[in-house]
Each structure stands twice: as C-alpha cells, then as structure tokens.
C-alpha cells in the first residue's frame, strides 16, 4: 500500500484560552442539562413538592379570605423556590459534594479554569431549573386560575435574567465558602431554606416585613427580583411593591457584578488555602 500508515495514537488538537474556557463551560453544563432530565423522579419530586407547598399556602390564603392576587404571588414565589433550591444544593454545596466524590482534585489538576466550571454549573443549573420552574408556574396557574396582566414584557424578561445572573453569582461565590465549611455545609444549606423564604418574601410582598428588614434581605437577589416580577405581573403588584422597578433593576445589576467578582476572588483564596492545608482530598463523614 502506498499510503502512509495511520498513527496508532492521533494527537487531539488542544484548546486553550477562551476556547478552552467555553469548552469547559459547555462540558460542565452538559450533565446538568441532560443528566437531570434523564432522572425522571427528580423532575417529578421537584415539581410535586413545590406544588404541595404552593397549594398549602394558597389554601391558607383562601381560609383567611385573602384577595385572589395573593394566590398569584404564592404561585410565582413557589416557582422561584426551584431556583433558590438549585443554587443552595447544586451550586453552593456543589464543590463540597465534588470533594466528597473525589472530583474536585481532578477539576483543579485539569488545565481549565475553575471559574469556567462554576459558570458551567450555573448555566446548566439555570436551564434545567427553568424547566421545573416553568412546570410549577404552569401547573400552579392552571390549578388555582391565576390571572396575569403583563404590561411590559421586555422589562419582565430583563428583571428575570438579572435576578438569575445575580442569584447564580451568589451561588458561585458561596460554593467556595461552603467548601471551606466542610461537612457543616449540608446543615447550612438546610438552614438557608425557610429563613430565606421568609426574608425574601417568597409567599407575601416583602414590603410587609418593614423597610430595613427588606433592605437587609435585598442582599439575596430573589428578594428584589421577585418583588419586581410581581409588580410587572399583577395589576396590584405596584401598590404592594417595595421599591420601584427601575431601582430594583439597578440594585440587581450591582449585585451581579459584586457577586461575580467576589466569586472569582474567593475561588482563588479557597484553592490556595485548600492546597496549602491539604484539604482537597479529605472526606469527613
């Protein structure tokens, strides 16, 4: 044969720079988007449990004779719990889980950016969770006959995207913190559910907590995001809103930048500290 023999081992072209960064983001997002949809029971439980909670709060409002728009507030809040739970359990706690399962050391050893891994986790989480949130919103709205009055759709989309960007930025930032806290992470994530539902006004307008409590709670992006979305979704939303929508959008934009910068700094700190103290491979059960 005249042709040259094919080498047994063909070198794979290596990506670097931004190309590697993007490939890492896609690679880490892939299991989030595809893997989570494969496990049907998770989809069922995620939607079913949220609908149960939403239904319970809707029936409480009905038992005490609340106006019908409060039912809508609960349904929207219930849908957004999916994102908060995803940030808590699949962003903040994720590096800790990765350490426990032995992946974290591989991530750090591989020639990719840890920021890209966190970003991939966030993007994958947003897409996978958006499907669940949409299902909760749809089922809740149909079950309880929620009426929406969207006057400004572009503003609603901007608020929603900014809220998610800031929220997942918070998740990326807290992933490093949770890793340093070790096995307390599980308890801390568990602790950050009901208190945040309360402070962020998942089931009632946050304005009712009082000005300063609402200001303090605004560090959680869902507080202002939910408030702005309700103002844009319901006719009485503006009257029950905490701040005006433009102010809330501006604060959310600042939170986005703040959390992403903090995430990058904390990630570097965590890596240095974990390597120095040799805690990357420890597994404390």
């Amino acid at each position: 044969m005249g042709s040259e023999a094919r080498p047994f081992f063909a070198p794979v072209p290596k990506a670097s720079g931004w190309r590697l960064f993007l490939k890492t983001v896609v690679a880490r997002a892939y299991p989030r988007v595809v893997g989570q949809q494969r496990e049907r029971s998770w989809i069922f439980f995620d939607v079913f449990l949220s609908i149960l909670a939403v239904s319970a709060y809707v029936f409480v409002y009905r038992a005490i004779g609340a106006p019908e728009e409060y039912v809508g507030f609960v349904v929207v809040g219930g849908a957004m719990t999916a994102f908060w739970l995803n940030v808590l359990w699949s962003m903040s706690s994720q590096l800790y889980w990765e350490k426990e399962s032995g992946n974290l050391a591989l991530y750090i050893m591989a020639p990719n950016s840890m920021m890209a891994i966190l970003l991939g986790m966030a993007l994958g989480g947003i897409i996978a969770t958006a499907l669940r949130a949409a299902a909760i919103l749809l089922v809740g709205s149909l079950l309880f006959h929620v009426q929406y009055a969207v006057g400004n759709l572009p503003a609603l989309v901007v608020v929603f995207l900014l809220t998610l960007a800031a929220l997942y930025g918070l998740g990326m930032m807290s992933a490093s913190l949770f890793l340093l806290w070790g096995r307390e992470a599980w308890h801390l994530a568990n602790l950050a559910q009901e208190p945040i539902y309360l402070l962020s006004g998942f089931y009632f307008p946050v304005k009712n907590l009082g000005f300063w409590v609402a200001v303090a709670a605004s560090i959680i992006p869902l507080t202002l995001g939910l408030d702005a979305m309700r103002q844009l979704l319901f006719p009485s939303g503006a009257a029950l809103g905490f701040l005006t929508v433009p102010v809330e959008v501006a604060v959310l934009a600042v939170l986005c930048v703040l959390f992403l910068v903090a995430a990058r700094w904390l990630l570097g700190y965590m890596e240095r500290m974990a390597i120095r103290e040799g805690r990357l491979l420890e597994s404390r059960r």
Partner: peptide
C-alpha cells in the same frame, strides 16, 4: 440556633401571611 431558626422561620411565614391579610 440551627434547631430554632428553621421552625421559627416556617411559623413566621404563616404569621406574616396572616398578619398581612387580617
């Protein structure tokens, strides 16, 4: 604190919901 915060927050959600409406 951990044992207190979760149940108190759950109760407070209902209290605020009730207080807002009534």
């Amino acid at each position: 604190i951990y044992s207190m915060l979760k149940p108190l927050a759950s109760a407070a959600i209902l209290v605020v919901m009730y207080g807002v409406i009534t």
